[in-house]
């Protein structure tokens, strides 16, 4: 049986740059295959716009397989659309009904200013990483991977935290514009492992300081971040960061 294409109405946020005011523009689109991804649907729309000599819609993307964290988009009231544990590039058009109206917005948070249309500047995350999201090691021959024994439980928790792709959905979903889920994932992935413990105290206090200075909000434990994280990072990481931070402050 041949699959019927979807006819949709798209309400897309268009904005020239951070200084100008933006607005929603309505674009009807026909015959979209339910098998294509959300970003492929936008590609088709952009091709149509180019054909009409209109400016295509700017949106972020890179890997298109859920690992880079570039794709953003607040779709019908949820970051990455109405599905759990996925990025926008992993969202399929079969999740939508024929005739549906889809609202597409950029991440909206003070620390993520809009660059153009649906593209926001997430370099605040990079600054948090530069403040301590690394380990300092001497270069040279790679040591044997199993030389340092690591508890399985910690290895698993560290791996779960390291799954964070820095997409910013946690900030976009948060009514406080807080970046705690992201920062706590980055703090945890090191704090749980012996190699990361060495610099754990400076790391957590520097990263939190940077996070505060960049204008992210204060966490009130609403759990909106956890509900929207494509990598299902848990808020237990936030508790771990709070404890790491408070202990490091006491020991100063």
């Amino acid at each position: 049986m041949e699959k019927r294409g979807l006819n949709l109405t798209l309400k897309i946020w268009r904005q020239e740059n951070a200084k100008t005011k933006g607005a929603f523009v309505t674009y009807p689109i026909q015959n979209i295959s339910p098998d294509c991804s959300f970003l492929e649907m936008l590609d088709q729309l952009n091709e149509q716009l180019v054909d009409k000599i209109e400016r295509p819609i700017c949106f972020d993307h890179d890997c298109r397989e859920g690992i880079c964290g570039m794709c953003s988009l607040y779709i019908n009231g949820r970051p990455h659309g109405n599905d759990t544990g996925i990025t926008t590039c992993q969202l399929h058009m079969r999740r939508f009904k024929d005739g549906e109206t889809i609202w597409i917005e950029p991440w909206r948070s003070k620390a993520f200013p809009i660059i153009k249309d649906l593209v926001v500047d997430r370099s605040a995350f990079d600054k948090v990483i530069q403040a301590g999201g690394y380990t300092s090691v001497n270069t040279g021959g790679a040591p044997d991977g199993n030389a340092i024994p690591i508890k399985k439980e910690n290895a698993d928790l560290a791996m779960d935290a390291a799954a964070c792709i820095g997409c910013g959905a946690c900030v976009a979903a948060c009514k406080n514009g807080a970046a705690m889920l992201f920062v706590s994932a980055k703090v945890s992935q090191f704090a749980l492992l012996p190699q990361g413990r060495v610099e754990a105290k400076e790391r957590v206090s520097n990263m939190v300081r940077e996070m505060d200075q960049l204008g992210f909000g204060n966490c009130t434990n609403t759990k909106a971040c956890e509900a929207e994280c494509p990598k299902e990072i848990k808020i237990s990481n936030i508790a771990r960061m709070n404890r790491e931070y408070l202990i490091s402050a006491l020991q100063k």
Partner: peptide
């Protein structure tokens, strides 16, 4: 920190 731009939905 949230800013003045609101989501439509």
């Amino acid at each position: 920190a949230r800013g003045s731009d609101r989501y439509a939905i």
